[in-house]
Nucleic acid binder design. Structure first.
Lengths: 202, 202
DNA sequence: TAGAGGAGAATGAACGTTCACTCCTGCAAG
DNA sequence: CTTGCAGGAGTGAACGTTCATTCTCCTCTA
């Protein structure tokens, strides 16, 4: 397989057509999975020719990776805003969980895509990098966990256990909600988040 | 596409060759995903011709579904044995969680396959059937949850929330463990299960 | 008219599935 | 016992389809 560099300069990255392609990919992959999103369909949905996609992305893999990066950036910035550092660990935890849940529920396409991505070969190596620590940017949650442990309000468990106790149930509930299998109302959401807190608090 | 019935009678279902094919499929899918397990490779690994597989299974989908059914059966029967009904809800919960975790960790291939399966189109519809209730066989965990709610030792939450608070963290931890990203020792396992209990207990 | 941007047909690789064939076993006739 | 035969088991080359990627030609616009 030839490694060839993209012919586009950075300055032309942000075009309407490029965004159409990204959006079409998001829709199709979120709704039908990676298999249900062949290039031909993406091109049709984006209203461009199949070849055009390769003027903007070197390969389908690159397209998907870039889509992921954009979504991750959006989520991270959403999670970071509005968190008041002076509040207690518990209040901040509840606040951030609620915000995460709210974001995922109101952006079902983004959520479904991220799920596909994490459960694919792409996601595995990403996970590996994150946990092994090649990417050493501690995110807001990890910082909160570490603070909670040192203040002795959280159980003295590895951060990845606290993360598993928090994110996995949330993601699982949101998945079933967006698939229409269950219906998460405000009451259940609040109680579920409280339950997560009960799991990790000392 | 023609719908044709399988030509084999039930009596010949259990042959060594059939088991070779099932085993080869498990190994390849667990290790490399559905994409990394084309029929040609499965055949090679099983030591049979590609066509032979179709003497035992109508299609690759049927092969995968049957593999899933066998594994599910094994897990369910493993989980059910040895649970003492006279013990407290808490003790039974801890016991079953520990057993589940132990099974998943000692059968990484089975676990990896199940993960692939659940995160594929097959798994989605299965999930749908299970939650919507077409399959109304309450499993051991769900019965325990219902008992705990009615005895007021568990939070009064929908069973699917209690399930999410239990299985999702366990599965997440086992995944990272079998991928070699983390190392679950007995101490962390015990504490993690206790934390799950803290999350669901009233 | 030159040249970039775009379209979609062409290409080749990979896959699931089929099918014409061989091999093997058991058995009945001679 | 030998021979011939029937048919199930097994094979793998070949087929048709699908897909990502490339290529060629068209269409604007400057």
């Amino acid at each position: 397989m030839n490694v060839h560099s993209c012919k586009l300069r950075d300055g032309m990255k942000r075009t309407a057509k490029r965004d159409d392609i990204i959006k079409a990919s998001l829709d199709l992959i979120a709704e039908h999975g990676f298999h249900g999103a062949p290039i031909a369909l993406i091109a049709e949905k984006a209203g461009v020719g199949a070849g055009t996609i390769y003027r903007y992305f070197d390969s389908k893999d690159v397209l998907i990776a870039e889509l992921y990066r954009e979504l991750e950036e959006e989520i991270v910035s959403t999670l970071q805003e509005g968190c008041q550092e002076e509040k207690s660990v518990r209040d901040r935890y509840i606040f951030m969980c609620r915000k995460l849940l709210e974001y995922l529920i109101t952006h079902p396409l983004n959520f479904r895509f991220m799920e596909q991505y994490f459960n694919s070969p792409y996601g595995i190596s990403l996970r590996r990098d994150k946990i092994i620590g090649k990417r050493d940017e501690r995110n807001a949650f990890e910082r909160l966990f570490e603070e909670g442990i040192s203040r002795q309000v959280l159980k003295d468990l590895p951060v990845y256990v606290l993360a598993a106790l928090t994110f996995s149930p949330i993601v699982s509930l949101v998945r079933d909600h967006t698939l229409g299998l269950i219906n998460l109302d405000g009451d259940v959401i609040a109680k579920s988040i409280d339950a997560c807190w009960d799991g990790i608090k000392r």
